[in-house]
Design a protein around this nucleic acid. Structure first.
Lengths: 196, 196, 196, 196
DNA sequence: AGTTAAGCGAGACGGTACGTCTCGTCTTTTA
DNA sequence: TAAAAGACGAGACGTACCGTCTCGCTTAACT
């Protein structure tokens, strides 16, 4: 995504078409969700969105970046992490929602994006930077809150606890180990966060 | 049926070239390890191995299958899981070796294989069937042994404990969360398996 | 065009498709003749001939070469120069046929080919090598025959006489100077070849 | 400059920049002469001349027109045809200068312009109208003067004699037939204009 | 010993996406 | 209000890989 800071002193020339950006991201998302990663070629995205390839390449020189942006556009809206409330309950609610979401479109698209990152960069680093980091930081803060008030085990680093929860869920999802449900997620969170 | 029970099927015609199979798998592995997934095209594998494309497609109609086989050829040799000995120590040794291996060629190739599986099938299912399942079953048996003799927490299913260990390691590897070392792995195993 | 000498010791691999070659040349010719040079893109030729772009690029790495071959395929059949008979009459017949042909499809395609050669190489050299040279040599021999028997002016090099005839005709055609007819061509030949 | 000299009908808005027109034509000429026809794209001309594409398209809606104008700007200055003096000598001097000029930048640019006219219009008609006609008319008048005073063959139309001279020279230049020199041109003119 | 059937290398082929380029239009701000 | 800056749709460019398809040669097992 190309950041356009809001305090700009009015750029010259024709301004970038906001409609085109949205159309591209929506088309990319729909293609991945509907027909899979392989179908989300730049050519098809261009055809579906009625935005020219040139324009797409201009704003997303890397295919991964486009896929991530398409994913973010939807992912940001779901799975909110409200920071107030009981830490464990909050995390349980979020993990449960995540586990359920993975089964649907969200999981399909997320995997596609990660796969593309690996194929192009050899790792999920870009995905981490653009998506995971913020979420991990937010959740880690909540865990630390819980560690301070004593509701969460304090012998283990908050970041590590986070990885245990979401690593386990992601692993089971990716490799198809059952069950992966809201209930499973809630129990997992409780078990990991209260272990001594 | 024209039973021809000579023990061996004793097929007619020229027998399959074992040398060709090895050459293909080695070439595929070298390409992934050296230049990345994108470089491991069938065309390049054919050129590098001096085996014709036709022959490659004949034995591996799916690219994923070829990549998995190339990976297995090396992965099987490393990371052995000796079933005797103290359960926790055994698992610690294995997890530590896994964590270290991920940092090198092994990790690069494994990711490439998984990425390809996702791109073609939408999930890592095939990777699970051909690689993970056996290892998970073996390790799970060891965990169960530990649960029986009391050295490992028994309130949690052995399979779930396995996923917590390897899910966490894989997650940290994939998304680049530091540290990921033999020491980290050993502590993780101890922490997860002895939690109450 | 890729010469395939007939005495080859049976080449290995799938043989080149003769049908594809013909289809490409016909499609290219039809496009130039029908819609002009600009329409004869490789993409359109591929679509029209149902031959893939790769194949076209393989055999004709330069667009000019394809256009020339397409032109040759038709040009070779028309405008034959029978070497026997009275030199002046023979050349008159040929020049007259040439002048008439220029007005139609032949002229259109020839110009397109020459234009493409200029655009890519800066001159008509390639066209000369692949088409003009042979014809000029044949005609020059006829002129020399006439010079020997005294029917054609002998003070001027045969090649130069050739250029005066066809240069004048081509110039008038290219820049639209009227008239350009069979009759004009016949008078021009007689005038130039018998001048003292 | 904030010049606001009355005198002029005082049109509103920014006046057309004469400097821009020159810059465009010079840039176009330099590009064709330096890197060839293919390099003389509108985009590059715009960049090189620092005139915006819009402005170029406004004054030269057809690319051919721009190229012709760029060519004319230089061609007009060279190859003058002084109408007084002995007809044959005058034409010899001019033809010799033309033959020599063809070998350099002039020839390169002229070919590029003609090629572009063919590619867009299917013929050199536009080039004739904008460039050739005037020159041909001037030269034809001189030939007619020679025909009246008896120094030039009178049995052949002046225009046709002109075409024989320049057609032959152009033909030899375009298709690379040697030699093409001042000397060759002088002899050609003498030969063609005094033939009986 | 000759026949048969599969394995195999070489390479042509249609299809499709890649990422880049130019064209010609359109939409803003600046002078 | 003309020119600049630059975004945009259309579509060709030339390359690469995919997976399929002839070919002709090679290698064994079966007659």
């Amino acid at each position: 995504m190309t950041e356009r800071s809001n305090q700009q002193p009015a750029r010259r020339g024709r301004p970038r078409s906001a409609a085109a950006e949205v159309a591209v991201l929506e088309a990319a998302y729909a293609l991945i969700a509907g027909e899979g990663l392989a179908a989300a070629t730049i050519d098809k995205v261009a055809r579906a969105s009625k935005v020219s390839k040139m324009t797409i390449y201009k704003w997303w020189p890397l295919r991964e970046a486009l896929l991530i942006d398409a994913f973010l556009r939807h992912a940001s809206l779901m799975l909110p992490l409200d920071e107030d409330g009981d830490p464990i309950t909050t995390l349980q609610r979020h993990a449960a929602a995540y586990a359920e979401a993975l089964k649907g479109e969200f999981g399909r698209v997320q995997l596609a994006v990660i796969s593309e990152c690996i194929a192009k960069n050899g790792s999920g680093q870009l995905f981490t930077e653009r998506y995971l980091d913020i979420r991990r930081r937010t959740a880690t803060a909540i865990i630390q809150r819980g560690q301070k008030d004593g509701s969460i085990t304090s012998g283990i680093a908050a970041g590590d606890l986070y990885d245990r929860i979401y690593g386990t869920l992601f692993y089971r999802f990716l490799f198809g180990f059952r069950p992966l449900s809201a209930d499973y997620a809630r129990k997992l969170v409780a078990s990991l966060l209260t272990a001594r």
